[in-house]
Computed example of a mutant assay.
Amino acid sequence: MTQEPDILCIGSVLWDVIGRSPSHMRQGSDVPGRITRLPGGVALNIAMTLVRFRLRPALLTAIGQDEEGHELVRACRDLGLITDHVYRSTDLPTDTYMAVEGANGVIAAIADAHSLEAAGGKILRALSDGTLGSDLHPYDGLIALDGNLTQRLLEQIARSPLFARADLRVAPASPGKAERLSPFLTHSRATLYVNLEEAGLLCQTEFDSSEAAARGLLERGALRALVTDGGNSASDATPDGILTQTPPSVLVTRVTGAGDTFMAGHIAAEAAGADRDAALTRALKAAATYVSGEHAT
């Protein structure tokens, strides 16, 4: 029997291949470390954290029917995620993300989300065929949407009646894809989750603080914007005002996935009824716990 989801996570679900070293690194560095392969992708990172906060996320994504895809779907189910609505392609391979992290942060990363991009609107079938929603009865719950989708599909989503009643929570997959979110800058139901660099790219300028960036996004027409700046401040901006907090100080042992954990922690806090101030505190605590190497709870 198909479970009823608390939230839909739309976007990349893939294998993360991460090389981590405790050393400071630069271009050309060759150092000892550890290489891991784990389920990842922005949508999946968000979904996994939501499960830890006792929510039931459903994935809308593309996963191949290759061995890597079968293994990934099994792993997602074992994590407590609803995979009934995943588009399983017979001719596209399962996507992969590869990154190298040193003590000084992410040195380099490559996201191969070509299968997700090629699948296009097929991943959204459950929102139109009556399974989760339709044109006449659009899905009216929470949706976490990531920027690994194509610019064209994101533009279609921003205009689509299928999303007209949803509480949209939107994040870019990386600074390189931040400008794909421009259709949501003036969207009437979208909350943006970005870091300082991504906010600058969306506003075509540079900001020196999360508060300035959040204000800039509001001035560009955003309904609501949450901006993070690593271990510095994070801000939540709405027309009612801007809240700014500083995250807890922790020893950083990993970076990839921190922004996704922040977003999931914030969504879960608000779903549980927390006000803006408490939700921001909980999200920052979840992200700090994650980068320290622990699990968010």
Rank of each mutant, 00 (worst) to 15 (best):
Q3F: 02
P5M: 09
C9V: 13
G11N: 12
V17D: 00
G19C: 11
S21P: 10
P22I: 06
M25C: 05
Q27D: 15
G28K: 05
S29M: 04
D30P: 02
G33L: 06
R34T: 12
T36P: 00
T36A: 01
T36W: 03
A43R: 04
M48G: 04
R52F: 06
R52A: 03
F53A: 08
A62I: 00
A62K: 07
I63A: 04
G64D: 05
E67Y: 06
G69S: 07
L72Y: 02
L72I: 13
R74F: 15
C76P: 00
G80V: 14
L81C: 12
I82H: 08
I82K: 04
Y87R: 14
T90Q: 13
L92Q: 07
L92M: 09
L92T: 01
T96D: 01
T96Q: 11
T96V: 13
M98L: 14
V100C: 01
V100Q: 01
E101T: 13
A109F: 04
I110V: 11
A111Y: 00
D112H: 14
D112C: 09
A113Y: 07
E117S: 13
A118D: 12
A118R: 11
A119W: 02
A119I: 00
A119M: 02
K122M: 02
L127W: 04
S128V: 05
D129I: 01
D129R: 09
T131L: 01
L132K: 03
G133T: 04
S134Q: 01
P138A: 02
Y139P: 10
D140F: 01
L142C: 09
A144N: 08
L145F: 15
D146M: 12
T150D: 07
T150G: 07
Q151M: 10
L153N: 06
L154A: 08
I157F: 06
S160E: 08
S160I: 04
S160Q: 02
S160Y: 04
R165W: 11
R169H: 11
A171G: 02
A171V: 08
S174Y: 05
G176E: 09
L181W: 00
L181S: 00
T186V: 11
R189G: 06
R189D: 14
T191I: 12
L192H: 05
Y193S: 05
V194L: 07
V194I: 02
N195K: 01
N195W: 06
N195A: 09
L196C: 04
A199R: 05
G200R: 10
L201N: 09
F207S: 03
D208E: 14
S209M: 05
L217Y: 01
L218Y: 09
R224H: 08
R224E: 09
A225P: 03
T228P: 09
A234T: 03
D236F: 08
A237K: 02
A237S: 00
I242W: 13
L243G: 02
L243P: 07
L243H: 04
P247N: 04
V250N: 08
V255R: 13
V255S: 15
G259R: 01
D260W: 03
M263C: 13
A264K: 14
I267M: 15
A269R: 05
G273A: 10
A274G: 11
D275H: 08
D277K: 00
A279K: 10
L280V: 00
L284A: 09
A286M: 03
T289R: 01
Y290M: 10
V291K: 00
V291Q: 04
V291E: 07
G293P: 02
G293H: 00
E294T: 14
